[in-house]
């Protein structure tokens, strides 16, 4: 069962209108994409699905996703002018609407973003009240909210890798809240996504990155910070 609400769920959040699912949640999905890519993309292809497909313009979700890609927070007043502000940072974009993705959440958005030779693809759901869930990162299944501390590791599918990461984090006094593991195939590339209650030290991240069989370590602290 979900944790009970508090005062600032009733008097809050402070947000940019008109709707927490269409603005705050979408900004967060854009911001996660920015963090995974490691900066503002040069180009982004954005697909709004299902309920979003029809209403994204009227509700300003097009501005919200671009604002997130430019690393704005959910209460940033510039969100309203995000379409114009992309020019200043050299972000080009293209929107598409797909209305028939029946296995997806009603409010889903897919962002494919590129910067230099790096590219990233993120599928996110805006679940209401600004809460999000990232369902896919670069084709790997995922299931994180970005409200905790998230670590995305791409590594070879080797024996004992999960135990290794868990051990390193426990040395760091980090409590693992959720974990999603998926892989392209046996002994192929695997992706491990961890959410932890407290922050992860830079030295720990460096240590993990140095393993020969670890290809990528992306760390995203609380998305609203």
């Amino acid at each position: 069962m979900a944790e009970s609400s508090g005062i600032f769920d009733m008097i809050g959040p402070v947000m940019i209108g008109p709707s927490s699912s269409h603005t705050a949640g979408v900004v967060r999905i854009g911001r996660v994409t920015n963090k995974i890519l490691g900066g503002v993309p040069e180009h982004a292809d954005i697909i709004f699905y299902n309920s979003f497909a029809r209403t994204y313009e009227g509700h300003g979700s097009n501005r919200a996703i671009l604002a997130g890609l430019m690393d704005y927070r959910t209460d940033d007043k510039r969100i309203k002018n995000a379409l114009d502000l992309t020019e200043e940072v050299g972000l080009t974009y293209k929107f598409r609407s797909i209305g028939s993705a029946s296995t997806f959440h009603p409010n889903s958005v897919r962002v494919t973003a590129r910067k230099g030779d790096k590219s990233v693809e993120v599928l996110g759901e805006s679940r209401g009240g600004g809460v999000i869930r990232i369902k896919e990162v670069n084709g790997f299944d995922s299931n994180f909210t970005a409200s905790l501390h998230t670590m995305i590791i791409e590594a070879d599918d080797v024996k004992g890798s999960i135990a290794f990461f868990a051990e390193v984090l426990s040395q760091d006094e980090c409590n693992i809240a959720t974990m999603t593991v998926s892989r392209k195939g046996r002994n192929d590339l695997a992706c491990l996504i961890l959410e932890t209650d407290s922050g992860i030290d830079d030295i720990t991240l460096q240590y993990l990155k140095k393993r020969k069989w670890v290809h990528k370590v992306i760390y995203i602290p609380d998305i609203d910070k």
Binding site: D9, M10, I11, G12, P13, V14, M15, I16, G17, P18, S19, S20, T23, G60, R63, D75, K77, I79, K80
Partner: peptide, 21 residues
Amino acid sequence: EVNSCMGRVVAAPTAGASGIL
């Protein structure tokens, strides 16, 4: 109206009711 026009508001309790308090 600020809420409808993508300005900053407090959802209290929700964004749709953000003018009443």
